[in-house]
Write a protein that binds this DNA or RNA. Sequence first.
DNA 1: CGCCAGGGCTAGC
DNA 2: GCTAGCCATGGC
Length: 273
Amino acid sequence: MKLYVKDFNLKESIESGQFFRYEKIDDYYIVILKDRVVKIKQESNILLIDSSNNDDIEKIIINFFSLDIDFNNITNSINLDNKIKTIIESSKGYRILRMEKLETVISYIISANNSVENIKRCVNRLSDKYGTKVLFDNKEYSLFPNINQIKDISIDELIDMKLGFRAKYVKSIIENINSNKLNLESINNMSSYDALDYLMKEKGIGLKVASCILLFSYSRYDVFPIDVWVKKIMNELYNLEKEKDIKNFVEQNYKEYSGLIVQYLFNYKRNIK
DNA sequence: CGCCAGGGCTAGC
DNA sequence: GCTAGCCATGGC
């Protein structure tokens, strides 16, 4: 099927480092979503889409890439200086995704002190061993496992997946989700402040990981991860070094869209510049 | 060999 | 409340 889009850059939105379950083949991407494999290609303002399951595919793609949100309109509504405006312009089409909750939680616990390529390998190993298999284009793909498929997983098995010191954190969070001590759906009804607090009670989830989860999986644009790339560019642009100073500056200037603006800065510094 | 990767935990002040 | 050292793994 075809889907017309505007202000959308498929490559940057997929490859920016927020999402891990994709592969690029020639000029299209294979993207593995919750319940299906999607083959997707962009030709200017048209997306060409095929999937292992084409039911509701348009709705699912619109939701995943947040194509229902007019990011252009949002950034225009904020009073931004010219430096930021230029960066956003060069990063135009980059989008905050709406990723699966369980997948995001586990992926970002694995992300601690890890490289994107290594995170991908770990998440793929988990999926290949425990996830549902899907046949598409005569090839077998693995979905990210649901909670029932991993509820009995042991720490040793997670260590075999090369999760390293993060294995115990992943094991702990799986237990808590399975016993409903941690309810990922209940976060929908929390303020972002309470949601950060709720997530950070879990072992292996600090401020950075909790922020990524809320931003990439719950569309909470008011939370923002600060990592080495954000620190680098905030230092270059505004001579801000301390995390606390960056936090205050971002909250004062970008308010409820802090996460969105910070992601543009991150994407510019890490992927474009 | 070292350092770093979308960090967090813990012990020790 | 703050910081230093530690943590598995892989790439360079």
